[in-house]
């Protein structure tokens, strides 16, 4: 499969993917409602910080952090792991494999196509962020805003690659769904989704900084709330690490997919 033929197919695949995302808008809304945990955490932390800030987080900073978390997850979220799992188990992967477009490329394009609808879901929260006092907790550095886009793109890729890699486990074990659940549990805690990472004790923070998960949520959120304003060099280092993890994940995907498909061919769906 050449890059040219992917590029030729991309516009149509994206258009149809968007049409599908629009058709499933009710489900999208339900999905958005299931990802409201940051609001609960915001309420808890606000109650805890009622008589003075926790670390660097006062009421404004907390609001900015958790609202940004919600927005980042809307945009970078991926369901590819579950999708591959279902496609392998129910045999629908066969249909995808009969097409001369690499199934993983197809999944990625479908995800990209859903971004406008998901951005729409995040829009009201962005409005709240900008219209309320939480605004003062956001970045004021144009460089940060620019690099936020880079970081969001990398977070999107990293998340989808991790999903691919775990989804491919469905080729090898009956219950890759469980692995996805474990991943999600780790992700919630280690990505900064439920708790800002700098509230953790130092030892835990060091351990978390060695894992890829913080690059999925915490890094873009921290750029969003201005942690790297005027610190372009430090940010560049972080982005390089993020890109590094993304490449590692891509390597894992390539490995899991080739071996998985070979096995799929040997054992059948």
């Amino acid at each position: 499969m050449s890059a040219r033929s992917v590029l030729r197919a991309a516009p149509t695949v994206l258009r149809v993917g968007l049409a599908e995302a629009v058709a499933y808008r009710a489900e999208l809304l339900v999905w958005v409602l299931t990802t409201t945990m940051p609001f609960v955490m915001l309420a808890i932390f606000s109650a805890a910080a009622i008589d003075g800030p926790i670390g660097r987080y006062g009421q404004t900073e907390l609001a900015a952090y958790f609202l940004a978390t919600f927005v980042v997850r809307q945009i970078t979220g991926s369901w590819a792991g579950w999708q591959i799992n279902v496609d392998v188990r129910e045999g629908t992967l066969a249909t995808r494999m009969l097409r001369p477009l690499h199934p993983l490329v197809a999944y990625a394009l479908e995800h990209a196509a859903a971004i406008p609808m998901r951005a729409l879901a995040a829009a009201p929260v962005v409005v709240i962020l900008l219209a309320t006092s939480a605004r003062s907790g956001l970045s004021r550095d144009p460089v940060s805003w620019l690099l936020l886009l880079v970081s969001l793109a990398l977070a999107w890729l990293l998340t989808i690659f991790i999903n691919f890699a775990i989804g491919c486990l469905a080729f090898f074990i009956d219950s890759s769904q469980r692995v996805l659940e474990v991943y999600l549990a780790v992700f919630f805690v280690a990505s900064g989704y439920l708790v800002p990472l700098d509230v953790f004790p130092p030892a835990a923070r060091r351990a978390l900084s060695l894992m890829p998960f913080r690059h999925q949520v915490a890094l873009p959120v921290e750029i969003f709330v201005g942690r790297y304003d005027g610190r372009a060099a430090a940010l560049a280092v972080e982005l390089a690490q993020q890109a590094g993890w993304t490449l590692v994940a891509l390597g894992l995907v390539a490995l899991a997919w080739t071996r998985g498909v070979r096995r799929y061919g040997a054992f059948g769906g």
Binding site: P11, V16, E20, A94, T95, R99
Partner: peptide, 21 residues
């Protein structure tokens, strides 16, 4: 087994396949 996208009109699947193939 079916390949048609369940909640979209078949023409969308045709478009999709034409692009992919």
């Amino acid at each position: 087994k079916q390949q048609l996208l369940w909640d979209l009109p078949p023409t969308d699947t045709f478009d999709l396949n034409a692009a992919i193939f």
